[in-house]
Amino acid sequence: MEIPVLASTAEQLEIWRANEDAVDAHLLGEILGKDPLMTLKLLAHAASQRSSRLLTDAETVTAALVLMGITPFFKAFGAQPTVEQRLASRPDALAGVQRVLHRAERAARFALGFAAHRADPDAAVIHSAALLHDFSEMLLWCEAPDLALEIQRRQQADPALRSVAAQRAVLNVELGDLEQALMHSWHLPELLAHIIDDKKANDPQVRSVTLAVRLARHTAQSWENPAVPDDLIEIGALMNLSPAHTLKLVHEVDGVI
């Protein structure tokens, strides 16, 4: 099934399609790069069209648009199906995918902040990796909402139940492993797949994304979550900051006053 995108993304695409001459890759990239599912869809398409003469992969939305060109992009991506349309009759599932999308947007901001502090030259790729980190969960909500709701129900019934254990019980696979298989099947850039892989936790780039995703998850409801102090200690160790300075940094990145 075709991957849906956010209704706001689909609407913006049609606005710019009518004024194609005024669009460039950076402007369009800023719009599309806020939508994890559109980002996934575009990078997968770019990978499928990649010429053997190219020495590098398109690892960000803007890079994919530069390689494709604006006119070919609009030809390849017509009117887009939306998440809101797909789940119009399932408000419970729509709420679930919206929570994951919001978490992804915050995780991407945290990861970019960590990468910038570390002066990582791949900061833009790290941002993309954090945005896409949970794309398999987003797709699960869209395509198999009953399974996603069952995982959610089990975790709510048992707060100590880890996500991967709930996923294995319901799906017979961990979503992280499914995600890696999909990225391999879609020939997504190796660097992107590497940074998204939590099992390579010793890599500082992977750790930046893992900790950003974890912090976004733990603070989704409140900064009072008891897991947050441990998160701050680990993030501080990554960036050589004290917990107090780490908290100040992540609050600034998250826009918390």
Rank of each mutant, 00 (worst) to 15 (best):
residue 112 L to E: 15
residue 113 G to T: 06
residue 115 A to V: 05
residue 116 A to L: 12
residue 119 A to E: 15
residue 119 A to T: 11
residue 120 D to L: 04
residue 123 A to N: 03
residue 126 I to W: 04
residue 130 A to S: 09
residue 131 L to C: 12
residue 133 H to K: 12
residue 134 D to W: 01
residue 134 D to H: 12
residue 136 S to F: 01
residue 137 E to R: 14
residue 137 E to H: 10
residue 138 M to D: 13
residue 139 L to T: 13
residue 139 L to I: 09
residue 140 L to Q: 06
residue 141 W to A: 04
residue 146 D to C: 00
residue 150 E to P: 01
residue 150 E to W: 00
residue 151 I to C: 09
residue 154 R to T: 09
residue 154 R to G: 07
residue 155 Q to K: 15
residue 157 A to W: 02
residue 159 P to K: 08
residue 159 P to E: 11
residue 165 A to P: 04
residue 169 A to L: 14
residue 169 A to E: 15
residue 170 V to M: 05
residue 177 D to P: 02
residue 182 L to N: 06
residue 186 W to L: 15
residue 189 P to Q: 03
residue 194 H to Y: 14
residue 196 I to H: 01
residue 197 D to S: 06
residue 198 D to V: 11
residue 200 K to D: 11
residue 200 K to Y: 06
residue 201 A to W: 06
residue 205 Q to C: 09
residue 206 V to L: 03
residue 208 S to T: 06
residue 209 V to C: 05
residue 210 T to C: 13
residue 211 L to C: 03
residue 211 L to R: 05
residue 213 V to Q: 10
residue 213 V to W: 03
residue 214 R to W: 09
residue 216 A to V: 08
residue 217 R to C: 00
residue 218 H to M: 04
residue 221 Q to I: 05
residue 222 S to M: 03
residue 223 W to L: 15
residue 225 N to F: 02
residue 227 A to L: 11
residue 227 A to S: 08
residue 228 V to S: 02
residue 228 V to L: 07
residue 231 D to I: 09
residue 232 L to M: 08
residue 233 I to F: 03
residue 233 I to E: 11
residue 233 I to M: 08
residue 236 G to Y: 08
residue 237 A to N: 12
residue 238 L to Y: 12
residue 238 L to C: 04
residue 241 L to R: 14
residue 242 S to E: 07
residue 243 P to S: 02
residue 244 A to K: 14
residue 246 T to V: 04
residue 246 T to C: 12
residue 246 T to P: 06
residue 247 L to N: 05
residue 249 L to C: 06
residue 249 L to G: 03
residue 250 V to Q: 06
residue 250 V to Y: 10
residue 251 H to V: 00
